[in-house]
Design a protein around this nucleic acid. Structure first.
Length: 214
DNA sequence: GCGCCGATTGGCT
DNA sequence: GCCAATCGGCGCC
């Protein structure tokens, strides 16, 4: 039940870049939640980039703005948490330029510690499904709008750290569950990870594999 | 004003 | 594989 040996905080400038670049580099990093006074920790294994006003699948498409997505236009490195299908919470990190409406959706996490609280929050489901999906990981980590939405990551109960010692390959595929821009290669997943939300994603050209860094 | 739909999930007609 | 849950935004009349 131990986390990474050493981990560094992410500077705000990490998020001051295009969402696809941020999304790719978030894979392999560690998310730490202290929400609800309980600690839970995991490795991010799947993300998706939403590019903002130019991206038909983005909540920020054509600068669309309303009460529920204000945080999407906040500063890079802040949380945008929205309700999906009126039921689930989904967590994004705002990136690129402030006001651009672009963000990275966290889609799956490999649980590392805090299994007790995660299992409790997820109703005793199999461990494989604890954080395998954007709504599931939010439930497991205790993420809701409260305390996160619109707040800088560093000033919230949930933060992302860069650990030493992870240099896995990352698969690039089309995004999941959307109806617009369905062929854009903006989903990033840790290659071979059993913790992602889906094992295979249909794509005309299939997944492209890249190195996460280096 | 009304009906439809979604960056999802879980249960089962 | 199909569908309900659940709700705010948006398209359309």
């Amino acid at each position: 039940m131990s986390g990474p040996r050493r981990a560094a905080k992410l500077p705000v400038r990490f998020f001051e870049r295009p969402a696809d670049m941020v999304a790719r580099e978030l894979v392999g990093l560690v998310i730490v939640s202290a929400a609800g006074g309980r600690r839970a920790l995991g490795r991010i294994v799947e993300t998706e980039a939403y590019l903002g006003y130019d991206d038909p699948a983005s909540h920020g498409y054509r600068h669309r703005r309303h009460a529920q997505n204000e945080a999407l236009y906040g500063p890079p490195g802040s949380w945008y948490v929205y309700r999906s299908y009126g039921v689930h919470w989904c967590a994004n990190l705002v990136c690129h330029a402030a006001g651009g409406g672009s963000a990275v959706l966290l889609r799956a996490v490999e649980p590392l510690s805090g299994f007790d609280i995660m299992r409790q929050r997820r109703g005793g489901i199999e461990d494989r499904y604890l954080c395998a999906g954007p709504g599931r990981l939010c439930q497991a980590l205790g993420i809701t709008r409260a305390g996160l939405d619109g707040r800088l990551m560093a000033q919230s109960p949930v933060t992302v750290l860069r650990p030493d010692g992870w240099d896995g390959a990352v698969d690039v595929t089309p995004r999941i569950g959307i109806t617009k821009a369905t062929d854009w290669p903006l989903r990033f997943a840790a290659a071979g990870s059993p913790w992602v939300s889906r094992w295979s994603v249909s794509s005309p050209r299939g997944a492209t594999r890249v190195r996460s860094r280096g």
